[in-house]
Amino acid sequence: MAIAYASTPRRVGAPHRGPITSLLEDERWLAMALLLPTVVLLGLFIAYPFFEGVYLSITNTKVGVPGAFVGFANFDKIWNDGIFRVAVWNTVLYTFVTTVFKLALGLWLALLLNRHFKGKAFVRAFILLPFIIPTVLSTFAWKWMFDPTFSVINWVLFKLGVITGRINWLGDPELAMISVIIVNVWRGVPFYAISLLAGLQTISPELHEAAAIDGAPPWKRFWYVTWPLLLPVTMVVVLFSVIQTFADFQLVYVLTGGGPANATHLFATYAYQIGVGTGLLSEGAAISLAMFPVLFLVVIIQLLYIRRVETH
């Protein structure tokens, strides 16, 4: 840019500039002016809450009680908290299982959608529905479907003769976790499918034709051509989704509230329950912050991977 400016000839007899205009002629001031809105927004909505959270986590603040500095007492406390440990395990399990299913189903859907068929555009738009509907809304619908009395799933299974009694989807600790996972997969698959479809469409059909002529049967074409070329997109999608899922809140909050008996608590829901529900702000902040190292690691891996792809 500097070169471009330097080579632009000064217009002779240009009108006199005001003080602000001439200040913005200087690239350093212009850069600052252009960056300011972003800095303000990020500072207000990302940096401030984050540092406030860090500050809260090392005090003993409660709702209405300004706290004093307590060091790492909150972290010590949650370390020895059995429910916190359950929440950690749940979050890891929830993230891992849903990611595997979302990736597998999303890839399968993307491969199907990448073929030519009638009504392709409509189906592609339709697939996105679970992703477009506000989570709270769709989760309420699922809550009805899992309702012990009114469950449509139970009704269908009963009518088909698969079950004889009611399945207590959200009341049984193990089933509740499975239910939560099902809803998350349902909600997350479209994102995978559409992103991977976009990735698939960047792969030239000629490569598949070349591989077909080279003697590769369909699954080898997938394994040797499609998959390696789709991997960069897949990595980004997975890491994105892992971050989202790890910090998931709405879905569990609406569906089970973390219950039954804390069986479905995740980091976020447990932090909310402790911090807002019971008013122990500092402890809630400590629980939220415990997520940070894991997510930080994920982000680092993501950035390193993207850089590697870019430089190669």
Partner: peptide, 15 residues
């Protein structure tokens, strides 16, 4: 794959 042919494409189609 069973026709025993080889093809050179316009855009090369190199992997």
């Amino acid at each position: 794959m069973d026709r025993d042919i080889a093809m050179v494409f316009q855009n090369y189609a190199l992997y």
